[in-house]
Computed example of a mutant assay.
Amino acid sequence: MDLNSGAGSLDQFEGGDATVRGAAVVSTRLSQPTDEWFLEPLSEIRIGATEFSEPDQKLFSVTQFVTAAGRKFSVPYAVATRPARGRRLWRAKVPAAAASS
């Protein structure tokens, strides 16, 4: 799914019959050949959060992504009427060995 057009539709996974079992983002670098694309595993997806855009002077509803490497980015999908923290849709499980060390 294209993140720019699909970020707002991820709420279909919340409380429904479908489950997110793993997630990654393919970084395509549109002007690069496909052999230079790479997969970034995600550690968290949060939907319905809001962020203020300085250039637009508007509050937007966003889907927030955190990669396994710690990179954070958001994809806006609608103008928001009030601030919100959003809801965690999915979070990667920490392996038991890593959690106990």
Rank of each mutant, 00 (worst) to 15 (best):
S5L: 09
G6W: 09
G6H: 13
G8A: 11
S9P: 07
L10G: 04
D11F: 13
Q12V: 14
F13Q: 06
F13H: 09
G15P: 14
G16Y: 06
T19A: 11
G22W: 05
A24D: 14
A24R: 02
S27F: 10
T28F: 02
T28K: 12
R29A: 08
R29E: 11
S31P: 01
Q32P: 01
P33G: 15
W37G: 04
F38W: 15
F38E: 13
F38S: 15
F38N: 13
F38G: 13
L39C: 04
P41M: 06
P41V: 07
L42G: 03
S43K: 10
S43H: 09
E44L: 13
I45H: 05
R46L: 08
R46C: 09
R46Q: 15
R46S: 11
R46G: 04
R46V: 15
I47T: 14
E51A: 13
S53P: 00
E54L: 06
D56I: 01
D56G: 02
K58N: 04
K58H: 03
S61C: 03
V62M: 04
V62G: 01
T63A: 12
T63N: 07
Q64M: 00
Q64P: 00
Q64R: 13
F65W: 07
F65P: 10
F65K: 08
T67I: 00
A68R: 02
A68V: 01
A69G: 10
A69E: 13
S74N: 12
S74T: 09
P76R: 08
P76M: 12
Y77H: 13
Y77R: 03
Y77Q: 08
V79F: 03
V79M: 06
A80E: 05
R82F: 03
R82T: 14
P83D: 14
A84F: 04
A84W: 03
R85P: 09
G86V: 06
G86E: 08
R87V: 05
R88A: 02
